[in-house]
């Protein structure tokens, strides 16, 4: 059992928090003699990676938004989209009444994570973000969400869920 990523989207469709549990990267290539060129490629790789992460968040939001609408259309207004699964990964979804969307990507063997997402909202997000006097009511570009307490709490909560047996 492993977790790949965690996202929070606000009601303005903006990604306000992202956390990725990256797999161990492959070993670096040996340094080349041309230090300048190497630095340039590193920077471009980093930029591309950041761009890809941003694009991924947008794609994931688009997917979930459409699926959520589809589920409402077919199952009625009180139907809720819970999760979907492909052969490679599983996406878990939880939406609060204020249209805050909590998403988690895990591997396919993980069971229902809805209660875990609810718990993240109730015990971590509400406690450390909503009740924080320093954080604004809305979080444009994620201001005030990724504070130390929330980050650390989420880290340890996920670690306890996905602890090696």
């Amino acid at each position: 059992m492993s977790v790949y990523a965690f996202f929070i989207f606000d009601r303005h469709t903006e990604c306000i928090y992202t956390k990725r549990w990256a797999p161990v990267p492959p070993p670096q290539q040996p340094p080349t003699t041309n230090g300048y060129a190497r630095g340039a490629t590193d920077a471009s790789i980093l930029a591309r990676k950041a761009l890809k992460a941003e694009d991924d968040a947008k794609l994931i939001f688009g997917t979930v938004f459409s699926l959520r609408r589809m589920v409402r259309q077919l199952g009625g207004e009180d139907d809720q989209f819970l999760s979907y699964r492909t052969a490679e990964y599983k996406l878990h979804y939880f939406e609060t009444p204020t249209q805050l969307k909590f998403l988690m990507l895990t591997d396919t063997r993980v069971g229902n994570m809805r209660t875990a997402l609810h718990q993240i909202w109730a015990t971590l997000y509400v406690e450390y973000v909503v009740k924080s006097p320093l954080s604004p009511a809305e979080h444009p570009k994620g201001v005030g969400v990724a504070n130390e307490l929330f980050d650390g709490g989420l880290e340890s909560f996920i670690a306890s869920l996905f602890a090696p047996q």
């Binding site: 699926l67 589920v71 077919l74 199952g75 009625g76 009180d78 139907d79 809720q80 989209f81 819970l82 999760s83 979907y84 699964r85 492909t86 052969a87 490679e88």
Partner: peptide, 15 residues
Amino acid sequence: RPPTTGLESLESSHF
């Protein structure tokens, strides 16, 4: 590598 598959199963509270 086997070809990656898209969405295989979707769960909602009604279906």
